[in-house]
Amino acid sequence: MALEAKNVDFRYGRNQPWILKDQCLKIGKGERLAVFAPSGYGKTTLAMLLAGYLEPINGQVLLDEIPLPKKGACPVQLICQHPEKAVNPRWRLRRVLEESGPLREDLLEALGIQRAWLARFPRELSGGELQRFCVARALTSGGDYLICDEISAMLDGITQAQIWNVVLEEAEKRSLGLIAITHNRRLAGRIASRILDLSV
């Protein structure tokens, strides 16, 4: 059981420079990996490839030796860096959340999502509040792998610790493979069992 990027190359257009070249990464179920690299190195691109939002130009992304499924909820869930760009601005948040399945009361409770927020539009919530919805959405849909792309950079210390405790508990319970992209080495030390630095 593993999620694997095999010699992946990617660039955003034929005249653009290569973002990723011959990149490999492997993570097993139940493993927790932190990924480091300088800004602009391709961390988010790698996350999008692993979660099936982009297709590699060369190389493959394999889940248990086969390519990611094209239909249904992707077993690799991605929580994006900018929550305000990851939700439909014209949907109320109840609809945003229910897109991935029936509401899970325990998650709403643990993440501190107020019932009243469900009736609001994304622009009526703060960045930190929206990110809780994105976390809840990714955890509701099932799936075996979770990629967290700088999910707590816009949160205060207490909320950051709360949300990570929810994610880690869920990861433990469902034995998720977890990839955390972060610039905060101290945070990485708290959450990951293995650290990968792409720049070395």
Binding site: G112, Q114, A116, D156, G157, I158, T159, Q160, A161, Q162, W164, N165, N184, R186, L187, G189, R190
Partner: peptide, 20 residues
């Protein structure tokens, strides 16, 4: 409490949420 919740100082959140 905020100071104590930072990853380098314990990573321990206090229970409850900010009132809205």
């Amino acid at each position: 409490a905020l100071w104590k919740a930072l990853p380098q100082n314990g990573f321990e959140p206090i229970p409850g949420f900010q009132p809205y």
